[in-house]
Amino acid sequence: MTISIGHRSLRITSPGNVMLWLVAAFHMLLAAMLLAVLFSVSPATAADDASCTGRNILTDLKESDPARYAAVVKEGEAVPNGKGIFWKIEKAGIKPSWLLGSMHVTDPRVLDLPPRTQAAHDAADTIVIESDEILDEKKAATALLMKPELTMFTDGTTIEKLLSPDDYARLEEGLKQRGIPLAAVSRMRPWMISSVVALPGCEMARKAKGVQFLDQKIATDAVASGKQVKGLETLAEQLQAMAELPTEFHMKSLIETLALGSKMNDVVETMTDLYLSGDIGMTIPMLKTVSPDGADEDSDYAAFEQRIIIDRNKIMAERAAPILANGNVFMAVGALHLPGEGGVIELLRKQGFTVTAVN
């Protein structure tokens, strides 16, 4: 697949993967949240249908290509700490704490925490999330407006100058379906715009109607109960991580998202099913199957993994350690930050904590 960026052509060997990695690991609703606040997207202008229509990609793959499905399962099972989203954190002399791998969506299946997880949340003294700034969306958006370079082009560049006429038309239609005029976001950085067209219409509809995504709900419930809520990152730091990836990377993400169209609904539905079953290690192997040839772009993924996952894992683990040292903490971070040799679970173990999965 070849795309045009301005007057340049760029070869993409793996349609879809770049954006899908970002959807899997990053707070895509964070960007959607900011756009909703900044441009006053209302329930009346957002997508009206709050039902999701995606199909599970792996269910179809199991029937159509059993061998490839088996390979996905095998790769997922080989990921360290890739099974389970709820973990117990222990160290001698302090009360146990709890770690939940979250999914940044408004899906009611995700919001409905299992009884044991809910009980741990309710009994905790302190709640830790990626960023406590999500408790006040308008305040967060206002603060980020003070650093426009993180979300917008400040050199006169517009998205129209970077897209071909066909891609520009597809983008305009995709945003229209979500109640956002293209003119309003023309100077936004590509990944901000991608976050909106990547999310299923049902997510945008629920968000516009005031439904909180999981991390927000966890934090809001904690505040209502008089608990202390602490963040591990600032929203500016999260956006900075995205901004540091090359513009070409983000342009590929945007164009690939437009090319995938309604298939994004299937991707999100499959990620949700994997999340609910605790098969987090299968997320990236699953995303590879979305490409026609199953290949992925190693250089792109390496850059993404280092900056968006590994670097942030280290920050989360380092900042969580002194909070966990007090015991009785309930911590929730994106589920894709948990598994792997460089995941939060392994990093906490290196700090002397015992971390075990809870069924």
Rank of each mutant, 00 (worst) to 15 (best):
R178T: 00
H104M: 07
V329N: 10
K147R: 13
I193D: 14
R307V: 02
V333M: 03
I323V: 07
T220R: 01
G343P: 08
P114Q: 02
A222I: 03
R307I: 01
G231P: 09
S64N: 05
A321C: 07
Q216S: 04
E90C: 13
L113C: 09
I218R: 13
A71L: 15
F153A: 08
A335K: 10
G54W: 06
D215P: 11
M188A: 12
R187V: 08
E130D: 02
T247G: 12
I89M: 02
S42D: 09
D136T: 04
M251A: 03
F39P: 15
V268L: 14
A208K: 11
I345K: 11
V73Y: 13
A92G: 15
D279G: 12
R8S: 04
I193S: 15
R187G: 08
A222K: 05
D300E: 11
E90W: 14
W98I: 02
L58K: 11
A141Q: 07
D48Y: 15
W21A: 15
M264V: 10
V358P: 00
E341N: 07
A205G: 06
I134C: 01
S102M: 06
K95D: 12
A219F: 01
P246Y: 13
A25N: 04
Q306V: 07
P96Y: 11
K74Y: 12
L99N: 01
L61S: 11
S277E: 08
M286R: 12
I315C: 08
E244G: 13
Y301F: 06
A205I: 06
E137R: 14
H337W: 05
K350A: 02
N265L: 04
T220Q: 03
G231K: 08
V344E: 07
L348S: 06
K139S: 11
Q177Y: 09
K88H: 06
P115F: 05
A119S: 04
G84F: 00
D49P: 00
S277W: 10
W87L: 05
T289Y: 13
A120N: 06
V18F: 14
L254K: 00
L347R: 14
P148G: 04
A243T: 02
A241F: 09
N313Q: 15
I255V: 01
Y69K: 06
K314H: 12
S97D: 02
L199V: 10
P148C: 05
M331E: 03
R349E: 05
Q228V: 08
P246D: 11
V223Q: 15
A31W: 08
A25W: 01
L347K: 13
K288D: 12
K91P: 03
N326I: 12
M264P: 11
S9W: 10
A32T: 08
V333T: 00
E90S: 13
I180E: 00
D215N: 11
D49F: 01
D132G: 14
